[in-house]
């Protein structure tokens, strides 16, 4: 049986206690909410923290509030099931409900939290392997080695951001509240991810995401999330497309965002797609142009299921379909 490496467990009952515990144990400690991603990685010895600071007991971080004025506030410990089933989210931010509901399986959505999902470790099929498998390979730069097995000449790790919710949150202009030893900061998700498979998040050791704020959608906002995977359950996305479009009462597109994920270490905001859509009535040719921009922006590598050309080609199809769904 795959087992966890030994560690001590320190439950935190408040955000302050969590920050204090993390500070106390320094780099020996890792924060964990549901652990659905971390525990699997620990079983493969990708992480061997001496101390786990359990965030689950912080009950007050499991909430979803929607206010017509302020928008949406989500506690980081809200489960993906909470989000997928929340009426306000389904009505106002359907792409977010779709993305949360598309994560893995019912059991894992019952367990996994939004805070965990936005920080899900980047993935690579040279990295997400058991210790002896990686030993046979000679390791890779993300763990225990010094070169990238996907792109040996790459100076940085190219592991893939596989979060379903991240591109949607970026599309909605959401931000994360981060609590840490030096206080509270707010980081827009658009700035939260980095093009580096190892240091992929703008969060420092000792800090935790506590809340997610999603601005009130502009009138006439529609959104969709489409996920390419080889099976209809379990699988991480191998292409994920989030699209948000706001139109006025004449059907004129006033705002648009297309974000593609699972084709690089961070979600790709496709500026060209927004440009192609804004100011149009979402005619077929505008959707084509936006899809083409998404296609051009996506640069998948050979580290997930399916091949590079297939995933790249699917970015165009999925972007187009996501926009069609919104436009129709």
């Amino acid at each position: 049986m795959m087992r966890l490496p030994p560690f001590s467990y320190r439950p935190a009952r408040s955000v302050a206690e969590a920050i204090a515990l993390l500070a106390e144990h320094g780099l020996d400690a890792m924060p964990v909410s549901a652990g659905t991603d971390l525990y699997a990685n620990m079983k493969q010895r990708l992480f061997t923290p001496k101390v786990l600071v359990g965030l689950r007991p912080i009950r007050e971080l499991r909430f979803i509030d929607f206010d017509e004025g302020r928008g949406l506030e989500i506690g980081a410990l809200s489960t993906l099931t909470d989000i997928a089933r929340n009426d306000a989210i389904r009505a106002k931010y359907p792409a977010l409900a779709e993305a949360a509901g598309a994560v893995s399986t019912p059991q894992l959505r019952n367990m996994g939290t939004i805070g965990g999902n936005v920080c899900v470790d980047t993935r690579c099929n040279y990295y997400n392997q058991n210790l002896d498998w990686r030993k046979a390979l000679g390791y890779c730069m993300k763990k225990d080695g010094d070169i990238c097995r996907v792109a040996p000449s790459s100076p940085k790790c190219v592991a893939v951001n596989s979060s379903d919710t991240a591109p949607v949150l970026i599309a909605f202009g959401a931000s994360a509240r981060i609590d840490g030893p030096s206080g509270v900061t707010t980081v827009p998700f658009a700035d939260f991810y980095r093009d580096d498979g190892i240091r992929a998040w703008a969060i420092r050791p000792g800090e935790i995401i506590t809340r997610i704020h999603v601005p009130k959608p502009a009138p006439g906002t529609r959104s969709a999330y489409l996920k390419l995977r080889l099976r209809n359950s379990f699988d991480f996305p191998i292409v994920g497309v989030a699209a948000m479009v706001a139109t006025d009462d004449r059907g004129l597109c006033r705002d648009a965002r297309v974000v593609v994920n699972a084709v690089g270490s961070r979600p790709v905001v496709v500026d060209g797609a927004a440009k192609a859509l804004i100011g149009t009535h979402l005619e077929a040719s505008a959707l084509d142009e936006a899809a083409e921009a998404a296609f051009a922006a996506a640069k998948p590598l050979d580290n997930t299921s399916a091949t590079i050309p297939y995933r790249k080609r699917m970015v165009r199809v999925y972007a187009r379909r996501a926009l069609e769904r919104i436009a129709s």
Partner: peptide, 27 residues
């Protein structure tokens, strides 16, 4: 699999199906 890839270890915690292979018993 003990990795959350199969569902064989599903149990209910407070009536909700979860994977016991990825739940800490202390919790």
């Amino acid at each position: 699999c003990e990795m959350g890839h199969c569902g064989a270890c599903t149990v209910l915690v407070d009536g909700v199906p979860v994977l016991s292979c990825l739940e800490l018993a202390v919790e």
